[in-house]
Simulated assay, not measured.
Amino acid sequence: MSIDWTHFTPWSSLGGGALIGLAVAVFMLGNGRIAGISGVLASVMNPRSEGWSEKALFLLGLLVAPLLWGAFAVLPAIDVQAHWPALVMAGLLVGIGTRYGSGCTSGHGVCGLSRLSPRSIVATLCFMVAGMATVYLIRHVWGV
């Protein structure tokens, strides 16, 4: 493996990670809930859920942030190398996995690991291993 030094962006990556940490900390301090995106999205689907407005604003911020970034800097080019059926299938599998796992990468991986939650540690290990195994099988065994 070699690093493409011309496109290596440690400072913007560090800044993005710090902003994610700040956002989940403010969300937790503001309403006492974990900023797991799958749970927040599920709650927003029910307009009578508790804290609906904060959750909707949080999701809106996720959508508006790239637009604001694009107003001041060039956004990276997006190059999706998968066909639409594969993307739809992947999205459905991730959605099913987040329901079975009672959370997603943001809930378990960011919020749960920072709280040293044993359940989140196990969940994060499971989805990381599953992701690595999937990539290995698709790229190196099946050659897709």
Rank of each mutant, 00 (worst) to 15 (best):
L68W: 11
G17T: 09
G112I: 07
V135N: 10
V144K: 09
G16L: 05
G143E: 07
F72S: 08
G143A: 05
I121D: 04
G39P: 02
R48P: 03
A65K: 14
V40D: 09
S49L: 00
A25P: 02
W52H: 14
M45R: 14
I138V: 15
V40G: 09
T98Y: 02
V144D: 10
V94W: 01
W11I: 07
T98V: 09
F8G: 01
A23F: 13
M128A: 08
I34T: 14
V144T: 08
V40C: 05
M128K: 00
L68F: 15
M128S: 09
A25M: 13
N46A: 11
G70R: 05
W84C: 00
S38Q: 04
G112N: 12
A90M: 09
A65H: 12
G61C: 12
H83E: 15
T6E: 14
L29T: 02
G36Y: 08
G39S: 10
L137T: 14
G109V: 08
G15V: 08
A123M: 15
L67V: 13
F72I: 09
L62W: 10
V122F: 11
L87I: 14
L137S: 07
G107M: 05
D4I: 04
G101M: 02
A130F: 14
R139L: 10
W52G: 02
S106M: 06
V110T: 09
L59K: 11
R99G: 00
F58L: 09
H140K: 12
L60H: 03
C111F: 00
S2W: 10
G107H: 06
V40S: 08
G131F: 13
T98E: 02
G61H: 12
V135H: 12
E50Y: 01
G109L: 08
E54A: 12
S12M: 05
M28V: 05
I3N: 09
F72R: 04
Y100N: 00
V141A: 13
G91L: 02
V94Q: 04
E54C: 03
C126D: 01
G103H: 12
I96D: 04
A56M: 14
V80C: 00
P118I: 13
L113A: 03
S13E: 04
G61P: 05
A130R: 04
L29H: 08
